[in-house]
């Protein structure tokens, strides 16, 4: 969309309340309340937004708090500082951006957000993790080669290692032990 069709909220502007745009908007000042558009909202570097933002695409390079609903996507640019609940079709987080909040991404996430993202809670796994016997065949541990070492060396000379000791604490350790033993028996 050409710049002429973008509504710009300049850096010296402060808005509070409900805003709706038919096109795109770039927020360089401060906004509080609720913002919606079927187009793109950009919270530019230096911009501050403490609002519920509902848009097709949301780009953040400033500060955002509240709730962000990006029906197509949300992009957090390197200067973004976001403390908000996010629901988006797709999420892009560039290096340097920071984000704290509840997050749902995918085609279903946006429709659920429409019925109230506030209902999100800190989630637990679908099924309680089982403490049953680990299945070593489900996990493969692989020796790590340094970046400078060519791949063919790894294939030609697999690592010779002693299995980890039995007093190690994490489940992973037991799994690694099982995988190593299996390798030794088969190898």
């Amino acid at each position: 969309m050409p710049d002429s069709q973008i509504t710009i909220i300049a850096s010296d502007a402060r808005f509070k309340g409900e805003m709706h745009f038919e096109g795109a908007a770039r927020i360089m000042g401060a906004c509080e309340g609720s913002i919606s558009t079927p187009g793109t909202i950009e919270i530019a570097k230096g911009g501050r937004c403490n609002a519920r933002v509902d848009a097709q695409r949301i780009m953040v390079d400033g500060h955002a708090e509240g709730e962000l609903i990006g029906r197509e996507r949300i992009e957090l640019l390197p200067n973004a500082h976001v403390r908000a609940d996010i629901a988006a079709g797709n999420l892009i987080v560039q290096d340097g951006a920071s984000f704290v909040g509840h997050c749902s991404v995918g085609p279903d996430a946006v429709t659920k957000a429409g019925t109230g993202a506030q209902q999100q809670r800190r989630t637990a796994p679908e099924t309680p993790p089982s403490r049953s016997e680990p299945q070593p065949e489900a996990i493969e541990t692989r020796p790590v080669r340094p970046a400078s070492q060519p791949a063919k060396v790894e294939a030609a000379a697999p690592a010779q290692h002693t299995p980890p000791k039995a007093d190690l604490q994490s489940d992973w350790m037991r799994l690694a032990q099982g995988a190593t033993d299996t390798q030794k028996r088969t190898g």
Binding site: N90, L91, V93, F99, V100, G101, H102, S104, V105, R122
Partner: peptide, 26 residues
């Protein structure tokens, strides 16, 4: 799905996050 803390985060189109409290880049 789950509460998540990481320095950087990337995802490809088609991937899904089914909820959780995120701390990225903190």
């Amino acid at each position: 799905r789950g509460d998540c803390r990481a320095r950087t985060f990337t995802m490809d189109a088609g991937a899904r996050i089914e909820g959780g409290y995120f701390e990225i880049g903190v």
